[in-house]
Structure formats: C-alpha cells, structure tokens
C-alpha cells in the first residue's frame, strides 16, 4: 500500500537517516517536518543521524500485520540515537527475543523492511541490530 512515489519521497529518511535540526532552538527532527515542534521556527539545517544507539522500549509482535508474516516473531523497538532523537525500528539478528533488554546497545543497519507482495516493490530502511562489541 506504499506507492512508488511515496516510497521514493521517503528515501532520504529511510536509506540515509537524514534528519533536520532547527536553526533557532537546535531541536532535531527525524523525520523532518515543516515547523519545529519545539519553537515553531521554519528554518532547518540537514544532518544524518548516527547509526548507534540504545533500546528505550520494545516488544515482540507475535501476531503480525499483513506483509510481515515471514518475519514473525517480530521485535520492534524505540531506539534513541542521540539525546532526545528517537525512532521506531525493528530489531534484527536476534537469536532469542528474550535477550532484548531496555538499554541494550544497538547499531542501525540497512535492511529490507517489507515488500508489496511477490510482484510489488521492496521497501528498504534500517533496523537495529545488537551491538556486540559495545
């Protein structure tokens, strides 16, 4: 249900984690938005989010939505990458979902998120994987 146009529009955020920083108050928005959610200003500078962070909260989805059956059980988390910048991502490469903990260090890796069936487009983005050297 994601059209080619919509998926293409989102590439800077999905593929490159491009965010925006308010030039007035410094709040970082991912994804970017038209006005700063903190001070209402409308001028921003771009930045790319770092690809390291930690798990703030998570769940393991056992009853999947359409299109995610093959990925079940599906761990999903809110990950914080820099002070206050949080995003929702799946957690990948986990042998046992029980090993996921709040505070777990993770790295964001480029992965396949979903696809529009066998014949439709493939949607790529980032997932959090355990950062084992941290």
């Amino acid at each position: 249900m994601i059209s080619p146009g919509r998926s293409w529009r989102e590439f800077p955020q999905r593929y490159r984690l491009e965010a925006e920083k308010c030039t007035v108050c410094g709040k970082i928005h991912y994804p970017p938005r038209v006005t700063c959610s903190k001070c209402g200003a409308r001028t921003f500078e771009s930045l790319v989010l770092p690809r390291e962070g930690k798990v703030v909260t998570f769940t393991v989805v056992r009853v999947p939505p359409a299109g995610f059956t093959e990925q079940t059980p599906l761990p999903v988390a809110i990950v914080e990458v820099m002070d206050g910048v949080r995003l929702m991502v799946q957690i990948g490469d986990v042998a046992d979902p029980d090993e996921i903990e709040i505070g777990m260090p993770v790295r964001l890796e480029f992965r396949r998120i979903s696809s529009d069936g066998e014949a439709g487009l493939i949607f790529y983005g980032h997932k959090a994987v355990p950062r084992l050297d941290a």
């Binding site: 093959e70 990925q71 799946q90 990948g92 490469d93 890796e109 480029f110 992965r111 396949r112 998120i113 493939i122 790529y124 997932k127």
Partner: peptide, 16 residues
Amino acid sequence: PGADEDTVTMSVEAAR
C-alpha cells in the same frame, strides 16, 4: 541470510 537481508542490503553494509 535473514528474511531482511538480500544482495542490496549486504552491498550497502559492505560499501559502508
């Protein structure tokens, strides 16, 4: 490969 890995995803990480 995981269900979320393919030639493209691995190429991106190798390139990084």
